[in-house]
Simulated assay, not measured.
Amino acid sequence: MPAQRILVVDDSPSLRRMIAACLRAGGYDVAEAADGDEAHAAAEAAPQAQPFGMLVTDQVMPGMDGLTLIRRLRATPRYAAMPILMLTTEADGQIRAQAREAGASGFLPKPFDPDQLMQSVAALLSPSEEG
């Protein structure tokens, strides 16, 4: 079974590389984007047979922010149900509420703990336990 494809979006190159490195070490196939516009273009350009299986995105970015990116991807049928994890320094509950309303599946505060990142990704990608 091929590795799950994850798109990582953050305008901080060092943070984006750190997130991507953690995910690659966990066996995921990772693509990176510097902002929402680049991420949206990458998602649209992904082959129909190999869409991204998950999005990990920052909220505050120049150009298209995380909330707008989430809304645009949710409006695309092949990404309507994709797990989306938002990483944000915003402690404001309003941002979380807006992100959840836009379609975010989960949240992780920045700075993030690599183990917590991997647990969150695994939980969002795993089908819920049958029972």
Rank of each mutant, 00 (worst) to 15 (best):
Q4Y: 07
Q4N: 12
I6V: 14
L7K: 02
V9R: 01
P13V: 15
M18H: 10
I19C: 01
A21K: 10
A21F: 07
L23S: 01
L23H: 04
L23D: 04
G26T: 10
G27Y: 06
G27F: 08
A33T: 07
D35I: 12
D35E: 15
G36Q: 11
D37G: 15
D37R: 12
A39Y: 01
H40K: 05
H40G: 03
A43N: 10
A43K: 05
E44V: 15
A45T: 11
A45H: 12
P47Y: 06
P47R: 13
A49D: 15
Q50L: 13
P51Y: 08
L55W: 00
L55S: 01
L55D: 00
V56W: 03
V56F: 04
Q59S: 03
Q59M: 13
P62N: 11
P62Y: 12
G63Q: 14
M64C: 11
M64P: 02
M64Y: 10
M64F: 05
D65C: 09
L69R: 00
I70Q: 00
R71A: 08
R72K: 12
R72C: 01
L73A: 01
R74N: 02
A75W: 03
R78T: 07
R78W: 08
Y79F: 10
Y79W: 08
Y79V: 03
M82W: 02
P83D: 05
I84V: 15
I84T: 01
L85E: 01
M86R: 01
M86H: 03
T88D: 10
T88Q: 09
E90C: 08
E90W: 05
A91F: 12
D92P: 03
D92R: 15
D92G: 08
D92L: 14
Q94S: 11
Q94V: 15
R96I: 09
A97W: 04
Q98F: 04
Q98A: 12
A99Q: 07
G103Y: 01
S105M: 09
F107G: 05
P109M: 14
K110L: 08
F112D: 13
F112L: 15
F112W: 10
D113S: 12
D113C: 13
P114Q: 09
D115W: 07
Q116M: 14
L117R: 09
M118V: 05
M118P: 05
Q119M: 06
S120D: 05
V121W: 00
V121R: 00
A123M: 04
A123E: 07
L125N: 02
L125M: 11
L125E: 01
P127V: 07
P127D: 04
S128D: 04
S128V: 05
E129R: 11
E129Y: 06
G131V: 06
